[in-house]
Design a protein around this nucleic acid. Structure first.
Lengths: 184, 184
DNA sequence: AATATACTACCTATTAGTAGATAGGCAAAT
DNA sequence: ATTTGCCTATCTACTAATAGGTAGTATATT
């Protein structure tokens, strides 16, 4: 892995662990053993690094979407949940939730990249639910986009909330979503 | 309003606007026109201020619970949603979501206070749903506590997520939750 | 007189960011 | 084959701003 990729991965991890405003170039510097000035060589500003972190996640998300293209809506949704299960088991939160909290403090350029990433996620989940409903695998009364937002919301929030309540709550919520989608 | 209350209210507002690590004693100092050292007179450390913010919200929440004690589950839930509608219209996020994001950076004492507050909220929503189910007003298959977490999650996350998507999404999610609770 | 509330002045640590030096590798020109 | 020069990646050393926090003092209220 190149130093640049190492920096991006570490920044990603720190943002989802401590939040955007709590992580510093010094954290990364210490962790990978180069000076902060060397990080500025790759990323002139913190915003540049933030943007790269979002773009990297977006890239990986896109790869996942393509890999699962011919799978069933159930499998796709299960894989979507698995993303958050991984986040939970790392005691982290998701990038969108972390940066949404800090939204009013981040640069416009970072905001725009984040909006694009959130839209990408929302579009995919909406597609999964649409396909699932058409094939009578999933059942729900409300608008598809709204249902997609609700499921994403549940995942986004449960990784945050279960830091305060109980780690088991993640699994319970995941199962409950599936039960409700399959009822009737 | 006393200076102390003014500081608490402003800190609350700043935490829910920018996040715990992005607000400073200087922000408050400028806003209410006293020196930062004067804020330290009331709150020796930032953690002390953070704890007071949580305790104040908890106090107000408790008052709301008592005021609504003899109301129907529907009214109670509606009022619960109204809390978040207010947050959304202020373009803020909820305290629990904000501090959950910064959880790994806050003092143990703040963490404990936050956990207590989250439990208080969870208990109330669980009670509302239990009563609603008993009286056949609400209908859901999954465990009551889990359902309560899901509804809180939806609120916690939608105020964050709709910063990136669309402000109208809040109202859509709120209505969808009610529809789903009343189906069958 | 005592207490509450505010102030001035200061401290140390950390932040993001910059300027300039250095060293090694690679490739084209001599 | 050697030199020249550029590019990449790192360093040292620095800056200005801001952070949370402290000590001691002044003022106002009770």
């Amino acid at each position: 892995m190149t130093t640049k990729d190492e920096i991006i991965n570490l920044a990603d991890s720190l943002i989802r662990d401590k939040g955007y405003n709590a992580f510093s170039f010094n954290d990364i510097s210490k962790a990978i053993g180069i000076k902060t000035s060397s990080i500025h060589y790759y990323f002139p500003t913190k915003s540049d690094l933030g943007i790269s972190v979002i773009k990297e996640q977006s890239k990986r998300f896109n790869i996942l979407i393509k890999e699962l293209a011919d799978k069933s809506p159930e499998v796709k949704l299960e894989e979507f949940f698995n993303m958050y299960a991984q986040i939970k088991s790392d005691n982290k939160i998701c990038l969108v939730g972390s940066l949404a909290t800090d939204f009013n403090t981040i640069d416009k350029t970072v905001k725009n990249e984040l909006k694009k990433f959130a839209e990408q996620i929302l579009n995919w989940v909406t597609e999964i639910l649409t396909e699932g409903k058409e094939k009578n695998i999933f059942s729900f009364q409300v608008n598809v986009r709204t249902k997609a937002i609700m499921i994403i919301s549940n995942m986004l929030a449960i990784v945050q909330l279960s830091r305060l309540t109980n780690n088991d709550d993640f699994e319970a919520v995941k199962k409950a979503i599936i039960i409700e989608l399959k009822q009737n």
